[in-house]
Simulated scan of single mutants.
Amino acid sequence: MGAKTALLVYMNTGVSGAPRMTGNADSERTRALVRRLYPGWEVAGASGCELGDATYPVEGTAYIGSFPGTDITCDRHWMGDYPTRPPQHLIDGSVGRRMVVHWMHSVVDFFAFAVW
């Protein structure tokens, strides 16, 4: 089974600043983020979960939360062999913010980390 992650994070702070994800995600901002990243997809609300349990959701599912200064998406749909070539709309979504990608699949010794 191994360890797996598929994270895309937008932050207002620099990489050296820790993301602030205290409390619950802002539901309205989260829905707006989903509409922007997944145009045309069905949005279903969910109760909160721990980040450690959400980093590699089942195919067709994404865990997304918008917190003050930090938006986080856990979705292996974007995961690929070239982390420096994500879909353009993901890069466009980071304008004025830091974008961090963290993909890992320990079974096949794959790890990718990218920062914009």
Score class of each variant (00 low, 15 high):
Glu28Gly: 11
Ala62Trp: 00
Gly96Met: 02
Arg35Ala: 12
Val15Glu: 13
Glu28Gln: 10
Ala44Asn: 10
Met11Arg: 14
Leu7Ser: 10
Pro83Met: 04
Thr73Ile: 15
Ala32Pro: 01
Gly17Tyr: 03
Asp26Phe: 08
Arg76Pro: 07
Gly93Cys: 08
Val107Asn: 10
Asp26Trp: 08
Met11Leu: 11
Tyr82Gly: 09
Met21Trp: 06
Gly69Asp: 13
Glu42Asp: 07
Ala46Gly: 10
Leu90His: 09
Met11Thr: 14
Arg98Thr: 15
His77Glu: 07
Gly23Phe: 06
Met99Asn: 09
Tyr56Ala: 14
Ile91Leu: 15
Ala18Pro: 02
Thr22Arg: 12
Val107Gln: 11
Val101Arg: 00
Ala25Phe: 06
Gly52Tyr: 00
Ala18Gln: 08
Gly80Ser: 13
Phe111Ala: 14
Ser94Trp: 01
Met1Tyr: 07
Val58Thr: 08
Gly69Gln: 04
Tyr56Ser: 12
Gly96Arg: 05
Phe111Gln: 13
Val115Phe: 04
Ala25His: 02
Phe67Arg: 00
Arg29Asn: 09
Ile91Trp: 03
His77Tyr: 12
Asp75Thr: 02
Ala18Lys: 04
Met1Gly: 11
Thr5Met: 01
Gln88Glu: 15
Met11His: 13
Arg76Asp: 10
Glu28Thr: 15
Ala62Val: 09
Asp109Lys: 09
Tyr56Lys: 00
Ile91Cys: 12
Ala3Val: 11
His105Ser: 05
Asn24Lys: 08
Thr55Phe: 07
Val43Ala: 02
Ile91Asn: 05
Tyr10Cys: 06
Arg97Gln: 15
Arg85Pro: 05
Leu37Phe: 13
Val9Arg: 07
Arg20Lys: 13
Asn24His: 05
Pro39Asn: 05
Tyr38Pro: 06
Asp53Trp: 05
Gln88Gly: 15
Asn24Gln: 07
Arg31Glu: 14
Tyr63Met: 11
Arg35Leu: 04
Met104Phe: 03
Thr70Phe: 13
Ala114Thr: 11
Gly80Cys: 06
Arg31Gln: 11
Tyr38Lys: 01
Ser66Arg: 08
Gly48Cys: 07
Ala62Phe: 02
Met104Asn: 08
Trp78Phe: 15
Ser27Pro: 08
Gly40Ala: 04
His89Gln: 12
Phe67Glu: 03
Asp75Ala: 15
Thr61Phe: 09
Asp26Cys: 05
Arg98Ala: 12
Cys74Leu: 12
Cys74His: 01
Ser94Ile: 13
Leu51Glu: 08
Arg35Gln: 07
Ser66Trp: 06
Gly60Cys: 06
Arg35His: 03
Ser27Asp: 06
Thr73Cys: 15
Arg29Ser: 09
Asp71His: 10
Pro39Gln: 02
His77Ile: 01
Asp75Phe: 06
Ile64Glu: 00
Val15Arg: 07
Asn24Ile: 08
Asp26Glu: 06
Ala18His: 04
Asp26Met: 05
Thr61Met: 11
Glu42Ala: 14
Leu90Cys: 14
Leu8Pro: 00
Leu90Trp: 10
Val115Thr: 14
Thr5Lys: 03
Pro19Met: 04
Tyr82Arg: 14
Ser106Cys: 04
Asp109Ile: 08
Met11Phe: 01
Arg20Gln: 13
Phe110Asn: 08
Gly60His: 06
Glu42Lys: 12
Thr73Leu: 14
Ala46Val: 09
Arg36Leu: 10
Tyr10Val: 12
Val108Trp: 10
Arg20Cys: 08
Phe67Cys: 00
Met104Asp: 07
Gly52Asn: 02
Trp116Val: 14
Asp92Asn: 15
Met21Arg: 02
Val9Pro: 00
